[in-house]
Design a protein around this nucleic acid. Structure first.
Length: 516
RNA sequence: GGCGCGUUGGUCAAGGGGUUAAGACGCCUCCCUUUCACGGAGGAAUCACGGGUUCGAAUCCCGUACGUGCUACCA
């Protein structure tokens, strides 16, 4: 009944795009690509009160960064425009009215206060259900309890009303979820949800069904939090367009807080010290920044990768997947049913693997920006490139490059004197002075030649080479870290090397005096 | 409270009647390196509980517990 696979992601631009959201897009995208179908992004902006300026653009920026480019959207165009629900407002009313005409929905005039009162009454009777449903609807103010004349008069007088779906009692609604299998719901527990709000906007329930139908969506993937309202959607499909035209459903598991207690939320990021949004989100009202994976130093491939395997795996031991591989291997049936706690340590491991795996060319620019941000100017691209290759295997996050390679650009300002002190004496001073002159007379400035001279000089002075190597490292780097010492020396050059040794020598000579 | 969904090491997970119950992250030990990392070799740690069904249950069934979601004119 569907000529092709068409899936949609339908974000609400209320600010930020969290991990769960990105994973939903990802799975939508993967399914579409895998089956040669289309990926549509439609904006759900029917809740005017919660819309935030800039949030829509932000969502597309995130998708762009992740490489999940839609085939159709507000930005990319397409045959089913508009892709913004607020701009489709009028078409929803027509379907709502049709539902009323067919006896599957009704006008309801109850004020919020009246509904509140109904709930109070229900509570007083000890009822388990506080819902507006078949149990109470005949006692309320609606076109079912009122006569047609009264109803018409109310509408004519401009009384605000909503349209509610009429859910019959005692029915069982079965449906198949691609992840969970056969499910059924009892309509006795389903309430008469509002379909069209008093302001004429549809609620999500009406809007998804209508839009999915109009946009010929074949597969609908969304978070598990929507499972309880699935019966409403199925009823709507049955009443409006026929179950044969209904897309196949898949309800994705939730991403949970690492320490238990619920869905991962925006606030958990600050609390636990890691981002929960794809990219930095700046609230336009408060200017408050919520950190993003991009800005904290993640590579998009790693970000997508870690999200994909949170709740899904292909049954093999493979953990590192490129987007292309994911498209190839993804299968919705292998998605887990249970929610997964997010583990930031593992997330960093993925990024680490991606940094190692990718050629530095892929993130050279971002690292350069980080160095510039630290005040290092006039960076030579080839030099940075070389240095990045030297240290990439020890970086998990992009800013780690500064910590791991800053000394290639700036001489150390402090030295690990605690490590040097026990080893320091007059003999060392003599050795390093000799070493400088040996280095100066070196014909070729390369690591191998340097190491030879270094060792020969050590033998000449009768000092253990290993001990000296550690000291030389601290002289050049400041601490006990980094790649092979002679490679560092070769990279920073002869002038810089001898200069740093000289500087350190002055410092360490004082060390010997105080220790004596 | 009602209803839904779920539950394999601390975390992500494979496994769907017979397995020594994979693998990864993290943690620990050792090797490599007189640095940090990478890499390599090991280690500790798991089928929520109780009943069934069965020769045999992590796997199937029931119950309980726990977790989680929904219960708005929010999505």
């Amino acid at each position: 009944m569907f000529d092709k696979v068409r899936v949609r992601f339908a974000p609400s631009p209320t600010g930020g795009l969290h991990l769960g959201g990105v994973r939903t897009v990802l799975f939508n995208y993967l399914y579409a690509r895998k089956h040669g179908g289309e990926f549509i992004v439609r904006i759900e902006d029917t809740d005017q009160a919660r819309l935030v300026a800039g949030a829509e653009k932000y969502i597309f920026d995130c998708l762009d960064w992740c490489g999940l480019v839609p085939d159709e959207s507000v930005l990319h165009g397409g045959p089913y425009s508009p892709y913004r629900q607020s701009e489709r407002k009028e078409s929803y009313r027509q379907y709502a009215e049709q539902l009323v005409a067919d006896g599957n929905a009704y006008y309801a005039f109850d004020t919020p206060a009246e509904i509140e009162k109904m709930r109070e009454n229900l509570k007083a009777t000890g009822s388990n259900s506080l819902q507006y449903d078949h149990r109470v609807r005949m006692k309320m103010n609606n076109s079912l309890s009122l006569s047609p004349v009264e109803t018409a008069a109310l509408i004519a007088s401009g009384t605000p009303y909503v349209i509610r779906i009429k859910v019959d009692e005692g029915e069982t609604i079965p449906f198949t979820d691609m992840i969970r299998g056969e499910l059924e719901f009892d309509t006795n527990n389903v309430d008469d949800k509002v379909l069209l709000k008093a302001d004429g906007m549809p609620t999500y329930h009406l809007a998804v069904v209508v839009d999915d139908y109009l946009m010929k969506i074949s597969h609908a993937f969304r978070g598990e939090e929507w499972l309880p309202s699935a019966p409403i959607h199925i009823l709507l499909w049955k009443y409006l367009f026929g179950l044969d035209n209904m897309p196949q459903w898949a309800h994705l598991p939730l991403i949970l807080k690492p320490d238990g207690n619920g869905k991962l939320s925006k606030r958990d990021g600050d609390r636990l010290g890691f981002p929960v949004y794809a990219m930095d989100w700046i609230d336009p009202a408060s200017n408050e920044i919520t950190k993003g994976f991009k800005e904290i130093g993640f590579l998009p491939g790693a970000f997508i990768n870690l999200l994909a395997v949170l709740g899904w795996n292909d049954g093999t031991e493979q953990e590192i997947f490129s987007l292309e591989q994911l498209v190839d291997k993804f299968s919705i049936e292998k998605v887990h049913k249970g929610g997964a706690k997010f583990d930031f340590e593992k997330a960093k491991w993925f990024n680490h693997e991606w940094i190692k795996k990718l050629d530095v060319e892929n993130y050279h620019g971002r690292v350069k920006e980080i160095f510039e941000g630290k005040g290092i100017k006039n960076i030579d691209d080839d030099y940075l490139h070389k240095v990045m290759n030297l240290v990439k295997e020890r970086c998990s996050l992009l800013p780690d490059f500064y910590m791991q390679a800053g000394f290639f650009f700036e001489a150390p300002v402090s030295f690990d004197e605690v490590s040097v002190k026990p080893k320091w004496d007059e003999g060392k001073t003599a050795y390093f002075n000799l070493l400088i002159s040996e280095f100066n007379s070196l014909k070729s400035w390369d690591a191998v030649a340097m190491e030879e001279v270094f060792k020969a000089t050590a033998i000449a002075k009768n000092i253990k080479a290993g001990e000296l190597q550690m000291i030389l490292r601290i002289m050049l780097v400041g601490t006990k870290m980094g790649p092979a010492v002679f490679v560092i020396a070769e990279t920073i050059g002869k002038e810089e090397t001898t200069g740093r040794i000289l500087t350190a020598l002055e410092r360490f000579n004082g060390l010997a005096a105080t220790s004596a």
